[in-house]
Design a protein around this nucleic acid. Structure first.
Ligand SMILES: [Zn+2]
Ligand SMILES: [Zn+2]
Ligand SMILES: [Zn+2]
Ligand SMILES: [Zn+2]
Lengths: 168, 168
DNA sequence: GCTATAGATGTAATAATATAACATTTGCAA
DNA sequence: TTGCAAATGTTATATTATTACATCTATAGC
């Protein structure tokens, strides 16, 4: 695992100067590949919504996407955005952050999965974990209670290391 | 820990026939005590909203509360409900379920805390855990990443043991 | 008991988030 | 080609939540 600020599991928050074009294009390429493999249509609209979501590591709200989309696509309306979001979420290409009513690109879109999210109250960025220990303890507790577990929503708010350092 | 269907940590979902009046009145009494201790005003409106939330173990939506409130209090409007909810959430007397936009009574309101929730997709009931193992693993992971953890949202969806059994 | 004040509630309007319903267009397979 | 299913366009509406300002109420200090 490298220390380039993107891939190290111990540093899921990207640093300020990382090559974000690389983040975006890597994610896009993985999604393009997954669509080809699954026989799905990544239409220009869906692709554009995904690109807009990947414009940063900060979760994006549906109506912010709509505003940006309208600049280049006058016909865009709420269903335009919500349909694209529905497709992208269903396929695991993005995740919805329930506590923010917002959406973020999935860092491992090749196969759908449930992540956990760290969300910085200070800079707004969010980072995805796919932590097996967290998943395991939740599975174990559910099982002990006879609860047939389906969806796990884990959203952790606080301050990221970068902001914590900056604040002194 | 008894096996009366309410208190056993291994069976956080109440059974169908439990004495729910006891759930509600116990919660109310604890909240009354906490308000007295903290010098807070549990006004008739706040108290009534809390009672309505405690009418079941299913998370309640703000506008459903509003509808019920209006039957007995014609002046009720959205801010009436949202202000009461804000007070109750701030004090830890209820919790907000982010993934449902709904509210549920806290099972341990004496001191504010963060719980985890199991939510049954079948019957709609939710059960609160205050599981130290879950809390610990989240704290540990956040710490490893230099993330200053503040709020943990853990909401687990699936099917409760009761519904699982009923479905065969 | 007054009365000033802070907190709680009333009231109207609107913002923010999301979906329903039906028409039209497009891509693709028979 | 032509027919169908999927995607998008279009309009309207549902749901969730907040802002702003007016009024009322409990109570602490006089
Ligand atoms: Zn990046
Ligand atoms: Zn930050
Ligand atoms: Zn009960
Ligand atoms: Zn159930």
């Amino acid at each position: 695992m490298t220390h380039d600020g993107r891939n190290d599991v111990l540093r899921p928050f990207p640093d300020q100067r990382h090559d974000h074009d690389a983040c975006r294009s890597e994610a896009l390429a993985q999604v393009v590949a997954a669509c080809a493999e699954r026989g799905l249509r990544l239409t220009p609209l869906r692709r554009r919504v995904l690109e807009l979501i990947w414009s940063s590591h900060t979760p994006v709200k549906a109506y912010d996407l709509l505003d940006r989309l309208r600049r280049e696509h006058a016909a865009a309306a709420p269903p335009t955005v919500y349909r694209a979001l529905e497709f992208l979420v269903e396929q695991g290409f993005i995740h919805r952050i329930e506590s923010l009513n917002a959406y973020i690109g999935c860092s491992e879109p090749e196969q759908a999965h449930q992540g956990q999210f760290l969300i910085c109250d200070s800079c707004g960025d969010a980072a995805e974990l796919s932590d097996p220990d967290i998943a395991a303890v939740l599975r174990r507790k559910a099982e002990m209670l006879g609860f047939q577990l389906d969806v796990c929503t884990v959203e952790l708010k606080g301050r990221c290391a970068r902001c914590e350092t900056a604040a002194g």
